[in-house]
Amino acid sequence: MNAIEISDLTKSYDGFKLDNISFNVPQGSIMGFIGQNGAGKTTTIRLLLGLIKRDSGSIKMLGLDNIECENEVKSQIAAVFDDIPFHNQLTAAQLSTVLADVFSQWDKAVYSEYLDRFNLPRKKKIGQLSKGMRMKLQIATALSHHAKLLIMDEATTGLDPVVRNEILDIFLEYLQDDSNSILLSSHITSDLEKIADCVTFIDKGKILLTGVKDDIVESHAVIKCKKSDLKDIDKNDIISAHVSDFGVEALAADRKLCEKKYSGITIDSTTLEEIMLFYVRRDKGEWTS
């Protein structure tokens, strides 16, 4: 079963179009949703959360249409934004009283445990908390009402590596329950390398890649060669090539094929970050830094 099923989703703005995108988030997994700024990640997430209306297409979350069964869906999901959506004047303790009204399944005991675990002060106003503490508080609230699906938009952006690691560990712990799933949008690919099971890569409103992260990373490769050797490489085999004084690095979409075809050339494994970089520049073909 899929936690999220997006089919032919379209949304047009002035100057931007989310173009017929489709992808699934399998239940029990973390899906990393990557793309550069303005690629369409936030628009997709807003559509999932029902904050904006789609032009066409369908979205199913936990097996239900997100518009037709809006309340049922929303009672089982939790959204985490890049900044805390609570009033600066409130404290963590006061927030619990407020959220007990918002969520029918609000669990004060679980929330209290998370506050202790994250060392979050109960009586300090939210406005006085650091960025990392605010994010931890937001995650504590998201995990305290037994949500089955976490949807996070740039939740780890702007956090120091220690806090980011701590948060990523919590996500992995949350996924110990097989019925829980996470969609994590980020442009920090190193985080997703660590924890994501699947990855969806969006650029200019279109899905370029979607699938199991390891399959995507393993099927791609970086071809390293001299400038003079570039002409021997079939343009159809590469996404784009980075040409520098030191030589050429080109991203190949089919590693096995390239290993067979170009036996005399160095073919290295790649990372999500490299894949993203080369795909974003795919229109240029060859590019220099």
Binding site: L49, G50, L51, D101, V102
Partner: peptide
């Protein structure tokens, strides 16, 4: 915006 993401 947060309330809109919930069933509240």
């Amino acid at each position: 915006r947060f309330c809109k993401t919930t069933s509240y």
